[in-house]
Nucleic acid binder design. Structure first.
Lengths: 237, 237
DNA sequence: CTCCCGTAATTGTATATACAACTATACATT
DNA sequence: AATGTATAGTTGTATATACAATTACGGGAG
């Protein structure tokens, strides 16, 4: 016997339709049987057939319009997007992580920073500068500015095992994050800290993130990654 | 009067719950009223209250377990991913696009290329090198290698308005694409073509894509973008 | 021929009901 | 004290029904 005895009927209907679509026998634009048709052919009530169709609609496989019927939907265009790697987490998984704290202090917002952080000038902020190392080799330079009101305990935290950014994600989950990825030449200080001594080295990928909590800015962090050791997406070989 | 007369009741219930969640008055883990509770307090049938809860469940705002109840769900970890901009399309939308063809020829696969393209050595490939311009200003350097068997008409195409990549997307929709984003120093030829004459210029973001059609490689394209004009994600200001 | 209207078909909203499956708790038995 | 049982509450599945809103189509009036 099949497992049809335990399989809910609306799921059986869904799978039947999904199979017709994925096999190509119902190409895009095909009209699928109406709720009443399905109810009759599967010997279920209209509400059960309806559930199969509405769920397939919400999943994007069908488009339903009153008076017309249900139709196989055009699959969405593939949006090429790339995941941002979490360098520190990668090290903690497969390497030996440590962290050098260059700066961890309270500052007052200057005009440019106040604007980006959406606070008033002279408002209290925390500033941290870190170098993340894998087996004593520096791999990432991090600079972070935090809204002091939202994370009062920020400067008292121990950052040997937890990143500043991860600490904030734990304490205050950001509701939204903006990203910007660009390429820059490392500054003198960054070159020194990242040990980019050779000529020709120094090209870095800069990742800037602004974390929001509702309508206020929690933090802005800037990550500087030497291009030799850092990339987005898979290796192509 | 409000618009409550036209607003479906299940939507009213949904919005009420959403407001409790987004305002913070029902934090993560809070148990929300049961189907019967909602049915009673909103004077609707259980099925209507149920619809509100099940939809919020599928949208990820609630977690429902039989016998226990419905609870405010933990918001999903934000997956930091960035869209790859389509430079040519952006120019065509808001600028004046043109294209210089540096190379457009048939070649035979050498060992390294054959490996990446998943073809045999000496198999026929097409190679194209383009410079994309906005108002005569070069903004992107493109190099593409195409499997000749899959796109025999590739070299005969006119690439003044359509990118090589877009042409391939039209003729043969790739089923899967791999990406890699890194930062490099432009080569001498690239500096010349992109008019990166000043000292200090020359840092570029390199985007490599490999398009697959089922189990065969359709093309590998490499885009070189001057960092000054190119970034991923939004501007943060 | 054109416009208007009725009708059938389809999806959307809503109710009332029934039973199944699962969970935690309280209570009774051993 | 540990175990088993009954029960109430919750979500999951399913049915039968009613009416509303939208669409296409056909037929009749002008």
């Amino acid at each position: 016997m099949t497992d049809s005895l335990k399989l809910p009927r609306f799921l059986l209907i869904k799978q039947t339709i999904e199979n017709h679509i994925s096999s190509g026998s119902w190409p895009v634009g095909t009209r699928v049987p109406s709720e009443n048709d399905l109810a009759a052919s599967f010997s279920v009530s209209r509400m059960t057939a309806r559930r199969a169709l509405t769920e397939l609609d919400k999943e994007g496989l069908l488009t339903r319009t009153p008076g017309l019927g249900s139709f196989v939907a055009k699959p969405p265009a593939v949006i090429p997007n790339v995941e941002l790697p979490n360098v520190v987490q990668d090290i903690q998984n497969i390497g030996i992580y440590s962290c050098r704290i260059l700066t961890l202090e309270t500052i007052q917002a200057d005009m440019a920073t106040a604007k980006k952080m959406r606070v008033e000038v002279d408002d209290e902020l925390y500033k941290g500068i870190f170098v993340h190392l894998d087996s004593q080799n520096p791999v990432q330079f991090e600079e972070i500015v935090v809204n002091a009101k939202l994370a009062p305990a920020f400067v008292k935290q121990n950052y040997n095992k937890v990143t500043a950014e991860n600490y904030l994600n734990w304490v205050i989950a950001p509701s939204h994050t903006e990203y910007r990825v660009s390429a820059v030449q490392a500054s003198a200080a960054q070159r020194r800290e990242l040990k980019l001594t050779h000529d020709g080295e120094g090209i870095c990928i800069k990742v800037t993130k602004r974390h929001w909590v509702q309508k206020t800015v929690l933090s802005i962090s800037t990550l500087i990654n030497p291009a030799e050791k850092f990339h987005l997406g898979q290796q192509i070989q």
